[in-house]
Amino acid sequence: MDRFLGWVTKLVLVFLYVPIVAVVVYSFNASPRTSSWEGLSLRWYVELFGDGPLLKTLQTSLIVGIFAAGLATAIGFLSALALTRYRFKGRAFFLGAIVLPLIIPEIVLGVALLTVFGSSGIKLGVVTLVLGHLIVALPLTTLIMMGSLSSLDPSLPEAATDLGCTPWQTFTRVLFPLTRSAMLASFLLSFTTSFSNIVISTFTSGVGTTTMPLRIYSMLKTGITPEINALGALLILLTLVIIFAVGLQQMRRILVGAEEKDQAPDAAPDTISLQTATTER
């Protein structure tokens, strides 16, 4: 049975990673057709950097993704803080309203957003794209931040206040250091969701604000060239760089935390974190 499960796992990994490897390999194919191999070439990378319209859509996707992820992370943190620290009337309804976009099909959300923007006289563009992607990303960030904040000792903010911290100092020196990893995860997940979104972008993008996924999807009508493979290979490389950078940062933080625990073995973890956060005060 273990051998069978091992083979199934290997087949699943091959199924997942073979397309990624194929994109990278065929980005160096000299042939304009992906069905044949004519040798190694950097031709499609040169054409990629000379394709102004495609690079413009990439710039739009990056701008929208950064703004949408930043807003979703900030609002998600505040929403999660309210939901985990306070018990107020309508709390269940508020939480349900936040996670509702995860249940409603995106095409329904897209039509609803287009109707609202049209009836309100809001011109479609970067702002509408950010708002549309924010609705999709906000439930993800809120749930991630709720999990992180729920694991903290609820008395930490009160203890920081007793030590003389202002609300801003409590956030910057206590809550932020303890939830930094969750915030980073929320931002990256929100950015990925926004960057790859097609359905919501179809209904909320305007003239001159076409995103990269929409551009690639429209190219299906005329045929996709290996230039898209070159773009995909660069995005894969960028993703790997981000993963390694985040991984090294997390490993460094783990090692620093282990050293602090060795220096103060009898102190409680929350006490160590609070003392470290308020040392510079």
Rank of each mutant, 00 (worst) to 15 (best):
A92D: 14
L78N: 05
A69L: 03
S79C: 15
A82P: 10
V64Q: 00
G70C: 10
K89H: 06
F67C: 10
A92G: 14
R87A: 09
G76F: 00
F94I: 02
R91F: 05
F88S: 00
G70I: 07
S79H: 15
L95R: 13
V64T: 01
A92W: 12
L95S: 13
S79T: 15
A68Q: 12
L81S: 04
R85K: 10
R91K: 10
K89L: 10
G65F: 04
A69P: 09
F93Y: 06
R87H: 09
I63K: 12
L95G: 11
F93E: 04
R85L: 05
L71S: 09
I75T: 15
L78M: 12
V64D: 00
A72V: 04
L81T: 02
F94W: 03
R85Y: 05
A68G: 13
S79W: 15
A80H: 02
V64E: 00
Y86C: 03
L78T: 08
S61L: 10
A74Y: 10
L62F: 12
G90Y: 13
I66W: 02
F77D: 03
I63H: 04
L78R: 07
R87L: 02
S61W: 03
I66S: 08
F94Y: 07
G90N: 15
A82M: 07
L78H: 11
A72P: 07
A72M: 04
A72R: 07
T73K: 08
T84I: 07
V64I: 00
L81K: 07
T73C: 09
I63V: 15
A74E: 14
A68P: 10
F94V: 05
R85P: 09
K89V: 08
Y86G: 06
A74L: 15
L71Y: 08
A92M: 13
L83Y: 14
F67G: 01
L95F: 11
R91Q: 09
F88L: 00
A72E: 03
A82I: 01
A72H: 10
L62I: 13
G76T: 02
L83E: 11
F77R: 03
